[in-house]
Each structure stands twice: as C-alpha cells, then as structure tokens.
C-alpha cells in the first residue's frame, strides 16, 4: 500500500490529531533512546501525569455525550475542587482521609455549581462553548477576590505576612500530597509507578462506563446525538443536558483534587484559568469530537498527550538549551487540536 493511502486510511480511522500526535510521540521516544535518556523514568513520569490528569479529561465525556459540546467551563468544577481541598486543610485533616473527605465535600459544591452552569447552558443552546469559556474565566477571576476574602484561618494557607487572604500556592506536604500516588506504589527501574492514582482513575472510568450503559446514560446519549429525536421519544432533553453538565462539573472537582495530591500543591487565583483547555485537547487527541466521546478516547488521549508533554521536554532540551519548551508545546498542541476540532464541527450556516 502506498504511503498516501495508508496515511488516509489511518487518519480516517483514528482521526488526524491522534495519528499526528502518535507520530510525534514515536519520534520523541526514538530521540530519547538515541540520546540515551532514562526512558524508564520518563515512562514512570508519564504514568504519574496520566493518572493526575485522567479524571479532568474524563469530565469532558458527559458534557460531550449530553450534547453541550466541549466543556470549556470546566474551571467551575476545578474551583469547587480547590475550595473543598482548602476546607479539608482548614479542618486540619491529614492523609488519605483528608483527601477522601475533600472529594466527598467537593461533590455537593460541584453539583450546585454544575446546576447553575447547566441552567445557563440550557438558555444558550448552540453557543455553549463560547459562553462556557468566558463564564469559566469570569468565575475564576471573581473567585480570585473570593480567595482573598474567604475567612480561612489555617496558617498553612494564608499569607505569612499581612494575614488576609489565601496564598497563591498551598503546599500539601504533610497533608494529602501524593496519597494516591504512593498507595500501592510499585518500584520501576528506580522510579515509582503511582498504582493508587491509576486505580482511582480506572475506577472512575469504570463508573462512567457503567453510567453510560444505564437507562439515564442511554437517554443522555440520545439527547446529545439528536435532541429532536429524544424529545419525540419523551426524553426531557434539558434535564439530560443538566445531568451531563452536573456530572462533568463534579468530575472536574474530583479531578482537580487528584491533580493537586499528585502535584503536591493547591494552586489558587488565576491558575485554573486555562486548565479546561488541556483537558479538552487530551480528549480530542484521543479521537473524540465536539459531538462524540468515549472512555477509550479519554484513556488513549490522556496517555498520548501527557506522554508527549513529559517526553518532549528532556529530548528537546538535550538538543538545544532553551527553557519553557514544554509550556510552548502544550499551548501549540492543545490549541491546535481544539482549532482542528472546531473546523470539523462545520459551519453553522
């Protein structure tokens, strides 16, 4: 088979972004081997980042499936996750129980936020992505004032001098940093594989898969695929969209906490601003579109995207000495992939 035909077949089957990113990743791995880099450490590192980001990416599924499209307003859920994370520290909890309690507390907070968000999205059908993006931005910047004013007292969290307001980064060491990553961690060529975090991610994938097989999940998918069909079948489309948005927001909150425990810090203020874009890009790389997404897209997309980010940095840095490259690649790849997806949605007219 000639290369062009093969290329076409591959891109038709897996989607253009997935093939491109896989190819890039393969090139970087070859480069890493040739530069004699510690590939095992890279793999372990990638695994950490995959487990760290996985649930945030998974949060895209209910929103895409229920028909509200890519959830650029995921930062709403991320904020409630952060809030729950702070409350757990304020209550002076530690270790796994602190993390689990934070997760439990984040759920009602996210659900309320998701409900309000879903209510708005039901009023702006067709423009969910534009409105969601700026709604996310607005709430993040409003919450920046909130972080300054909220009456947290724990000295670990508030500014050492001056006293008022929370710090930009709150260290979690001694609280719940790495509680999942270190759970059942397996040694791997001098590094550790974060078994607990991977299992946690797998658990949520399984729950999502089961949900999509349930009566409600099936109805939600129908509402997303064809709202007119769903309405004619007696399915309440707005309610299904609401369910999708709430679940997405809740997963955003939990995903943020998983991210934070692995990262070791809670990042407040403007930090959540661009996080939804990375999650969106990952699911798109996995082969999802603005209208269709599966668990397989989430898993493969997260693996490809995070592995690319992890591997590219040392490889390029070894080739030439410039800083901040991983950031540039993240920006170009994630926005490039989103742009590509937008052109594929087709013109509105």
């Amino acid at each position: 088979m000639n290369p062009m035909a093969l290329w076409k077949k591959l891109t038709d089957k897996y989607g253009f972004p997935k093939v491109c990113i896989s190819l890039m990743l393969a090139i970087f791995f070859i480069g890493a081997f040739m530069q004699k880099q510690d590939v095992a450490a890279m793999l372990a590192d990638s695994t950490v980042r995959i487990a760290m980001n996985g649930i945030l990416v998974l949060a895209m599924v209910p929103s895409i499936v229920s028909g509200t499209g890519l959830n650029f307003g995921l930062s709403l859920g991320i904020i409630t996750g952060l809030l729950a994370g702070c409350i757990a520290i304020e209550l002076d909890m530690r270790g796994m129980s602190a993390f689990l309690w934070a997760v439990v507390m984040s759920i009602p907070l996210s659900a309320i936020m998701g409900y309000a968000y879903g209510w708005i999205l039901n009023k702006v059908k067709g423009d969910e992505m534009t409105v969601g993006t700026y709604l996310g931005f607005s709430v993040v910047s409003l919450m920046s004032i909130g972080w300054l004013l909220l009456p947290f007292k724990s000295p670990e969290m508030i500014w050492a001098i001056g006293g008022a307001g929370l710090r930009t980064t709150i260290a979690l060491s001694g609280r719940y940093a790495k509680v999942l990553d270190d759970l059942f961690a397996i040694p791997f060529f001098g590094s550790k594989l974060p078994t607990g975090a991977v299992l946690f991610f797998a658990l949520f994938c399984l729950l999502m898969w089961l949900f999509l097989k349930s009566k409600t999940g099936v109805a939600m998918a129908a509402a997303g695929d064809n709202p007119k069909f769903a309405a004619a079948s007696g399915i309440n489309v707005n309610r299904q969209r609401m369910i999708g948005t709430v679940i997405s927001t809740v997963l955003g909150g939990i995903g943020m906490l998983v991210y934070a425990q692995s990262f070791g810090f809670l990042q407040l203020y403007q930090a959540p601003l661009m996080m939804p874009f990375a999650a969106t890009a990952a699911v798109l790389i996995g082969g999802a579109s603005a209208r269709k997404a599966t668990i397989a897209h989430v898993v493969s997309g997260t693996i490809l995207f995070q592995a690319l980010l992890t591997v590219s940095l040392p490889v390029i840095n070894a080739a030439m000495n410039v800083g901040n490259l991983s950031e540039i690649i993240r920006i170009i790849v994630s926005n490039g992939v989103i742009l590509y997806a937008l052109t594929k949605v087709g013109g509105g007219h």
């Binding site: 920006i331 926005n335 742009l339 013109g347």
Partner: peptide, 21 residues
C-alpha cells in the same frame, strides 16, 4: 467555522501565542 467565529478566534489567539513563543 462560520457561526462559531468567536470561540474559534479565541482559540486561534491562544494558538498564535504559542506559535509566537
């Protein structure tokens, strides 16, 4: 991307920022 120019131009701006860097 007619009909969704604003979200596209937003993302295009972010993308261009990466390209600029």
């Amino acid at each position: 991307t007619k009909g969704r120019e604003m979200i596209t131009s937003m993302i295009l701006g972010f993308f261009a920022n990466g390209a600029w860097q």
